[in-house]
Design a protein around this nucleic acid. Structure first.
Lengths: 220, 220
DNA sequence: AATAACATGATTGTTGACAATCCTGTCGAT
DNA sequence: ATCGACAGGATTGTCAACAATCATGTTATT
C-alpha cells in the first residue's frame, strides 16, 4: 500500500508540478531540462519525467529534439501576439457563454473581484491586480462551463504568462485593464451576450496593444 | 547505426500513427487501448506507446485512468457542439488572417478547390466533397500562416471527425456547404477581412446546425 | 595557429524484468 | 439463487541496467 507518508507528496502528477515550475519562471526560456535532474528534484523516476516532457511539448511549453533532450520553449514576440489573438477569439466566446449562463450569485462573485481590483489599483499593488486578473478570468470560465474552451485557454495562457507581466506594468495599462474588466462584468451581469463578447474582445485587444507596445519598447 | 531497412518504417513517430488509427476509425469510442498490443502492432516498445498515449490524452483523443489504462475518448453530443463552437471562433480568426495575406496565386488555388467541389457535388460524390472540404480549410490555414491557431484547429478537428461525417450526409447540407465555402473564398480573394470572418463563421454555423439536426435525428 | 581525428564524459533512448493493481470467473455460505 | 471471499490471469506502473548519441576537450598534424 505504501502509505502516503509526508515524504510521499511526490505522488502528485509530475507533469503538473513541472508545468508550474516552468510557468512560474523557475527555468529560463531555452534552458535545458535534464531528465535525471528533474527526476531527482521531483522525486519520480525518469520514465515519468519523459512522459511529462512529452505532454508539456504537446502543450507548447517545451521543445524536444531527438537525442538532444528538452528545453523550455522560447516563444517569440510574433508568436506571443499570435497566441494573444487566439486568446481574444476564445475569450470572446467564453464571455458570451458566461453571459448566457450567469446567475445572480455568479454576478456577486464577479462584482466582488472587480471591487478588490479597484482597491488593489488605488494601492498600486500590481502583483495583486495580476492575481485578481487571473481569478476573474477563471471565474468567467467556470460560469461559461465549457471544458473544451477552458482547456484551450489554459494552454494559451500558460505559454505567455511571462509576456503578460511586461504588459501590465506599462504606465496607464493597469487602470485601463480594471475598467475593461468592469465593462465585461457589467455586460455579463446584464445577460447581454453580444456586449459581453465585445467587451471581452476589447479587453484582450487592449492586452495585445500593450504587448505590442512593450515589445516595441523592448521592455521586460 | 541500425540501417533504416524497409522493416524500419516503424521509426516514424508512434503517436502520429496511433492518432491516424484513432481518427480513422480503426478503434471504437471507449475501446480499450492495450499497451502491449499497440507496441506490437506499431513495432515500437511499450515506453514509446506510453508516451504516445500521454500525448494523445493531452490532445483529447484518449482518456487514461490510473492503473486502468487508456481508452479512445468518447466525445458526447454536447461536447461535439462545444468543440464545433470553439472551431467556429478560431476558423473565423484564421479566415480573417487569410484574407489579409492571400496572394493571387493563393486565390487561384482556393478557386480551383471550389471548382472541384462543385464538380464533386453534381456527381453526388460525398466522400470527395469531404476530402475537398479538408483541403480547403488546410489551404486557408496555410495562407493565414498562424501556427498557433492551426495547431489548435487540428486538435479540435481530430476530436470530431466522426461527427462531421454524419452532418455532411444530411439532405441539402452538401449543397449549402459548397455555397458557404464559395462565399468564404470570394471574401478572402477580395481581401475583405470582415466579410471573410463573417462568411467563415456562417459556414461553421451551418455545420453546427447540421450537427444539432443530426443529433436530434439520432443519425449516425 | 588552425584544423581534423579522436577520446571521454554527459545525456538521452531502449529494453526487459519485476511489482502493483485491476478484472474475471469460481467456489462456498446463506 | 444471491452474495461475498478469493484465486488466477491480464494489464499497467516502476525500476535499473545497458546501448546509442551528443557535446566537449585533447592531441597530432600541417
Amino acid at each position: 500500500m505504501k502509505a502516503n507518508a509526508p515524504e510521499d507528496e511526490g505522488r502528485q502528477d509530475a507533469a503538473a508540478r513541472l508545468r508550474e515550475w516552468i510557468t512560474g519562471g523557475r527555468f529560463m526560456p531555452n534552458e535545458r531540462l535534464i531528465e535525471t535532474d528533474l527526476a531527482q528534484a521531483l522525486n519520480v523516476n525518469r520514465a515519468n519525467i519523459r512522459m511529462a516532457l512529452a505532454m508539456l511539448e504537446q502543450e507548447g511549453l517545451v521543445v524536444r529534439e531527438r537525442n538532444r533532450g528538452a528545453r523550455v520553449r522560447l516563444v517569440s514576440d510574433a508568436e506571443a501576439i499570435e497566441i494573444a489573438e487566439a486568446r481574444q477569439s476564445l475569450e470572446g466566446l467564453i464571455a458570451r457563454q458566461a453571459a448566457a449562463r450567469a446567475s445572480k450569485a455568479d454576478c456577486a462573485v464577479l462584482r466582488g473581484i472587480i471591487a478588490e481590483m479597484r482597491k488593489a489599483h488605488t494601492a498600486a499593488d500590481y502583483l495583486a491586480i495580476s492575481a485578481l486578473n487571473g481569478r476573474l478570468h477563471a471565474e468567467i470560465q467556470r460560469i461559461a462551463d465549457n471544458a473544451t474552451v477552458t482547456r484551450l485557454l489554459e494552454m494559451l495562457r500558460s505559454q505567455i504568462v511571462r509576456q503578460q507581466y511586461r504588459a501590465i506594468l506599462l504606465p496607464g495599462r493597469a487602470r485601463a485593464s480594471v475598467q475593461e474588466h468592469a465593462a465585461i462584468v457589467v455586460a455579463i451581469c446584464a445577460r447581454d451576450i453580444g456586449a459581453a463578447e465585445k467587451a471581452m474582445r476589447r479587453h484582450i485587444g487592449g492586452v495585445i496593444a500593450a504587448l505590442k507596445q512593450a515589445i516595441a519598447l523592448k521592455v521586460g
